[in-house]
Write a protein that binds this DNA or RNA. Structure first.
Lengths: 212, 212
DNA sequence: TAGATTGTTAATCGATTAACAATC
DNA sequence: TAGATTGTTAATCGATTAACAATC
């Protein structure tokens, strides 16, 4: 399944939830698509990858499609998640409510700074990185958010892979190459601003909105 | 120019800076590409869009290419930038050193919460949103980072457009549609985790690394 | 029934890769 | 010179869109 499709699935879900909040019960591919600037055929094609959710002449039943998408995306369950690197960004993400709403529960914090280890932040005690394996097993951690400095990221990613972590959301501005059963998604916030600056300089009329 | 090319330009720059720190002076398209998991022909093609930077038989001179990319991306200058929404994420981004290193200087904070207005955070006084236009003009603001709740994002984006802001880095989990000369790049952190969860569930051997 | 809208096939479009003459 | 590597063209690949029979 192309990664682009999965990215759009999340966007569909977000829009469907907005439609539902507005009291709608049904939505067509063209309405859902135009809310996101996506072609109606693409919406139908993306959804058809996973089953027959629509009814000709009627469209998609919102509640039903939301349920299906949550299951496909794997957010019909809880994901105990660790934050590795308790700096500014790590602390902010610990408190970010959007994660919890989606089933991503931050249940452990790690750092290698002796000054931070043992501190309680947001109700969690910061643990030394050496305990990652132990804690991961104990809490069933499969996901971790990596908010350490760039210099440390490679080493920590290796460590995480060895500790059974299966997915890493990396905020360090480096390319990580990690062994097989670990997946990495990197978000470089500076690069996002760079791309925005480019558009401001070179696309004087503004471009269409970019999502991720 | 395709947006994908611009995204890769930033990645090339990041890797080139790493090569330079390691003391290299020259790099080939295949070496630069393999550091990022990108085909060598693509590296050459991307760079050739903007000029003839390479020498056959030798490769690219790193210092020269860094300078050129910084100019193309528009980070050969300072970008005074505002943060709108002084919550956890806004505060964390205010202190994020990666922005400053790239020329993005946070010079103003805005919020509409009376409890926050007037507070000093990181040396800056939180101002009411109504002052955005005035301050934008005074400080030459063209970029803003939007870290307000989803419900407020649409309204604030409209306001920003009216105040001459030209680029918005949006962290609210909503689709923004804004008038013409404003560009928006949206980063939905929950969606990144959702995509990671999907991969962990459905790609048991891990996938290749995803950057943004 | 007529109108709306699906799932899906075929056509289009754009992006990636392979190949290679030119050249350091 | 021989080896390496570029810029660029042509070939390939994949993703997006148009079109339409099926159907609610």
């Amino acid at each position: 399944m192309p990664r682009a499709v999965i990215g759009r699935l999340s966007l569909y879900l977000r829009e469907l939830e907005a439609f539902e909040r507005r009291g709608e019960t049904t939505v067509s591919s063209s309405l859902l698509g135009s809310a996101l600037g996506i072609n109606d055929a693409q919406v139908r094609k993306d959804l058809a990858c996973f089953g027959q959710f629509g009814r000709p002449g009627i469209g998609y039943r919102i509640a039903e499609l939301i349920r299906a998408l949550r299951q496909i995306l794997g957010i019909d369950r809880d994901w105990p998640t660790a934050i590795i690197g308790v700096g500014n960004l790590g602390r902010a993400l610990l408190r970010y409510r959007g994660f919890r709403n989606r089933g991503f529960h931050i249940v452990a914090l790690f750092d290698n700074d002796p000054k931070k280890i043992g501190q309680t932040v947001g109700g969690l005690v910061v643990q030394p990185l050496e305990r990652l394996g132990e804690v991961a097993e104990e809490l069933g951690l499969r996901l971790a958010i990596l908010t350490v400095p760039g210099e440390a990221a490679g080493r920590v990613a290796e460590l995480a892979a060895g500790c059974g972590i299966r997915g890493l959301l990396n905020f360090a501005p480096v390319t990580l190459t990690v062994p097989e059963p670990l997946s990495v998604i990197s978000v470089d916030l500076s690069i996002q601003l760079e791309n925005l600056a480019y558009r401001v300089l070179h696309e004087p009329n503004g471009g269409e909105a970019i999502t991720d």
